[in-house]
Amino acid sequence: MSRIAATFAALRRDGRCALIPYLTAGDPDPDATVPLMQAAVAAGADLIEVGVPFSDPMADGPVIQAACERALAHGVTLRRVLEMVARFRETDARTPVVLMGYLNPVEVMGYARFAAAAGAAGVDGVLTVDLPPEESGDLERALAAHGLDPIFLVAPTSSRARVERICAVARGFVYYVSLKGVTGAAHLDVEGVAERLRAIRAVTGLPIGVGFGIGDAPAAARIASIADAVVVGSALVRRIGAHAGDREGAVREVSDLLGQMRRAMDAARGAAAAAGA
C-alpha cells in the first residue's frame, strides 16, 4: 500500500478528515521549506503538497504567483525541490508528500528521469496542474514504474464523462477544485461542493480532497464534514510571505493556522459522528 493510501485508510478508520497544507518550495527562502514542512506536520498536517515554483503559474492567484517569484529569485529549481523533499524524509518517513506544479519543468527533465529522482527523494504523488488525462499517459507510466501516484484535479465544470475518465487514471486521492477560478479565490459554496462530491463518489471510491478558496478554520470545518481532505494553500502562503526573513514568525503562523484548522475539523467530524450516533 502506498504511503498516501495508508494515510487515508488510517484516517478513515479513525473517522477523521485529512488536513493538507500547500507550501511553495523555496519560499520565502530555500532553507525555510523543510522546517515549515516539519512545523506543518507537528501542527496536525496529514499530507503535504509541495509546490514546484514555475515562471508562468497560469492556474494560480496572486499569492502563489508571488511565492513562485520569490522562490525563483533564489534559484529554486525542480532538482532543488527534490533535494528538499529528500531532506524532509531524513526526519519523517511517514507523512506523504505530493509535488504540485506545472508540466514544463518535468517535461524538460524528462519523465523517466523525473520519476526516478522523485521516487528516490521520497515523493509519493505528483499533481501536474496543466496535464489532463488526455495527455498524461506517458507520465503516468513513468510514475507507476517508481510507485508514485498521479493525482488529478476535478473541476466544477467537469462533466460526468470527464469525472469517470479522470477517476479511471487517478491514484491516491482526487483533488476537487471547489470553485471556478484560480488558487486563493474567495467564493466558496459549501452546498454546491457537497452536491458535486456526491456525484464524484458515485464514480470512484478514491478519497476526495477539496481545495482552492479554503482559508480559515470555519471554512475547513464545513468542508471537513463532507470531504476526505481539506487543502489549504494561499492562506498559508500569504502568512509565510508576510514573514520573509523571519523564520520563527513564519513557522509560528503556519502552526497557528493549521492548528486552528485541525481543531475545527476534528470538532466538526466529532459533532457529525455524535449527531449520527
Binding site: 497560469m58 484535479l153 476535478v154
Partner: peptide, 20 residues
C-alpha cells in the same frame, strides 16, 4: 481530433478549462 500537429499542440490546461 485532439489538436496534435505531429508531436506538437494538444490541450495542456487545468481541468476547469477542459470542458469549456
Amino acid at each position: 481530433a485532439v489538436g496534435h500537429f505531429g508531436p506538437f499542440g494538444g490541450r495542456f490546461v487545468a481541468e476547469t478549462l477542459m470542458e469549456p
